[in-house]
Amino acid sequence: MASSSTGFNSGLDIGKSYYVATANPAPDHPALASDVEADLVVVGGGCTGLSAALHAAERGLKVVLLEGGKIGWGASGRNGGQMIPGLRK
């Protein structure tokens, strides 16, 4: 996966990271292009946002998750496992 030359996090050279190089290919998800109704809107697709969205959906809520970049790429994906210390080993 090559990093984009423009756009969100373009200066970070994401394509050369260990996490991107060893991850399974991410599925494409459509951008929000029209109005949508939801019981819960979660802004941010890091560990906390993904967990909130998953748990709400499992309880039957209609959930919309908004993320401006790649899912899990922000601090949750680059923290070296500080949130879950065993992952950095």
Rank of each mutant, 00 (worst) to 15 (best):
V43C: 08
E37P: 02
L50F: 05
V20M: 08
I84L: 14
S4R: 11
L61P: 02
R78M: 06
K89N: 12
D28P: 02
A75G: 13
L54F: 11
K89A: 13
L66D: 00
A31E: 09
D13K: 13
K89S: 09
D39F: 07
S34Q: 14
I14T: 07
S34V: 06
V42H: 06
V64S: 05
D13V: 08
G7F: 12
A26H: 13
R59L: 13
C47F: 14
A38R: 01
A26N: 09
A75W: 06
A56H: 02
G68Q: 15
L32T: 06
W73K: 05
I84W: 04
G68D: 12
K70V: 15
F8V: 14
D39Q: 08
G69N: 14
G72H: 11
T22Y: 06
L66A: 03
D13G: 06
S17N: 01
R78E: 00
L40W: 01
S34E: 13
T6W: 12
G49M: 01
E67G: 03
A53V: 06
P27E: 14
A57P: 02
G46W: 05
K70S: 09
V42C: 11
G15E: 01
L66I: 02
G80L: 09
K16P: 00
L32Y: 01
A33K: 06
A57V: 03
Q82W: 07
K70Y: 15
G46P: 05
N79T: 08
L65N: 03
A26Y: 15
V41E: 03
S3T: 12
G46N: 04
G69F: 11
G7L: 10
A57K: 01
A75K: 06
S17Y: 05
W73Y: 14
K16R: 09
D35Q: 10
S3M: 03
A21T: 09
D28N: 11
H29G: 00
T22W: 04
G72R: 09
L87W: 08
G68I: 10
K16G: 09
L65F: 08
I71Q: 03
T6L: 09
I84N: 10
A53M: 02
L87H: 08
G80M: 07
I71D: 01
A21Q: 15
L87V: 14
P85Q: 02
P25L: 13
A2L: 11
T22C: 01
V64M: 04
G80Q: 06
S51L: 10
A33L: 05
H55C: 10
G44Q: 05
G7E: 12
A33G: 04
W73I: 13
A52Y: 01
R88G: 10
L87S: 10
S5F: 10
G74R: 07
V42G: 08
V41I: 12
E67N: 08
G49H: 05
S34R: 13
P85A: 07
L40V: 14
G49A: 04
R88L: 02
V42M: 04
C47H: 13
L87Q: 10
A52V: 13
A53F: 06
V36Y: 02
H29C: 08
S76M: 07
D35W: 08
W73D: 01
L54C: 06
V63M: 00
P25S: 13
D39S: 10
